[in-house]
């Protein structure tokens, strides 16, 4: 098991470096950063001066190395727009995003897994139909629309919840539901399909033949095996939620990292965008790594391979 973890960890670090290099170079391919920084109507001399000032005249590899070593120390440079250290800027926003992401994935798992299990126990029953309806609705409904509906109903008409901002836990209820509901259908369907398959397997019959009570058959013997693919999916969705909750953050005016990324791209704020891309991809890598470890713990066959 330890050997497996170390191997996966090594792989994760390698992927992290590759991703950081690609994201760094992609931004260079998107145009001349000095020209963009100088703005329209700037003279050639101004652009050259900026180029030297920010070090864009150095070879790209040198710039990458410089940026990477600073980044490893937590220094992502200074935002062109805010004139503040990028690290401070992001740290502030990341709390909101991480809180929202954690609440969102928790909401998704807490609703999707029991619903998927219940649907699999009684296929084609009323509960299965309801679960199917909820998942189709969740997949078909755009997040921005669902968010707006919630605001109209619960904030404006009923006045139960605040429509926007991040001042208290009540502000997070609607964004959590919108974000979580986006991830819920896939998790639910995968849980249901997994449980259906596992419940028909020979080892479930063996468990019943031993005289195991039905609850133990379902949760100890079946869910443990059915949940394995769900873990991988949830990890990817978690990464997505932390990096891609731009829509939800915009609707509910939660000034999180996703929203910052969106704004910074528009402002050509290169250091901020680079730092955010790096951080978002690190989330993916970390969650994938954690999912691998969790899966290896759940499924002994993965440890050896």
């Amino acid at each position: 098991m330890l050997q497996f973890i170390l191997k996966r960890l090594g792989l994760a670090v390698l992927v992290a470096f590759t991703v950081s290099f690609i994201s760094f170079s992609l931004l260079f391919l998107s145009g001349d950063p000095a020209a963009a920084l100088a703005g329209e109507g700037a003279s050639g001399e101004d652009i050259e001066a900026l180029r030297t000032l920010y070090g864009f005249d150095r070879p790209m590899l040198v710039q990458y190395g410089d940026w990477l070593f600073s980044a490893l120390r937590g220094d992502f440079g200074e935002s062109y727009y805010f004139k503040l250290p990028v690290a401070t800027l992001i740290a502030e926003r990341l709390t909101v995003t991480m809180l929202l992401g954690l609440c969102g994935i928790t909401f998704a798992l807490v609703t999707a897994v029991p619903l998927g299990v219940a649907a699999a126990i009684r296929p084609n029953s009323l509960i299965d139909r309801i679960a199917l309806f909820l998942s189709v609705a969740g997949q078909a409904m755009p997040s921005f629309w669902f968010g707006l509906i919630l605001i109209v109903v619960f904030a404006i008409k009923l006045g139960w919840l605040p429509p926007s901002g991040a001042a208290s836990w009540r502000h997070f209820i609607m964004p959590t539901i919108v974000l979580g509901y986006y991830a819920m259908p896939a998790i639910m369907r995968l849980t249901r399909a997994g449980m259906l398959e596992v419940l028909n397997s020979d080892y479930i019959r063996t468990a019943r033949a031993k005289g195991a009570p039905e609850v133990q058959v379902l949760f100890k013997h079946a869910l443990r095996n059915a949940i394995i693919p769900v873990v991988s999916l949830a990890a990817v969705q978690m990464g997505f939620m932390l990096g891609g909750s731009i829509v939800v953050e915009s609707i509910f005016a939660l000034h999180g990292a996703g929203y910052l990324a969106w704004e910074s791209i528009g402002r050509n704020d290169l250091p901020t965008v680079q730092a955010l891309i790096l951080i978002f991809s690190m989330f993916y890598i970390v969650f994938t790594f954690l999912a691998d470890v969790l899966n290896a713990w759940l499924d002994p066959r993965m440890r050896s391979s």
């Binding site: 080892y203 019959r205 063996t206 443990r224 002994p300």
Partner: peptide, 8 residues
Amino acid sequence: TSLNPAYT
């Protein structure tokens, strides 16, 4: 296939 793959 009659033994549960997840348990010893």
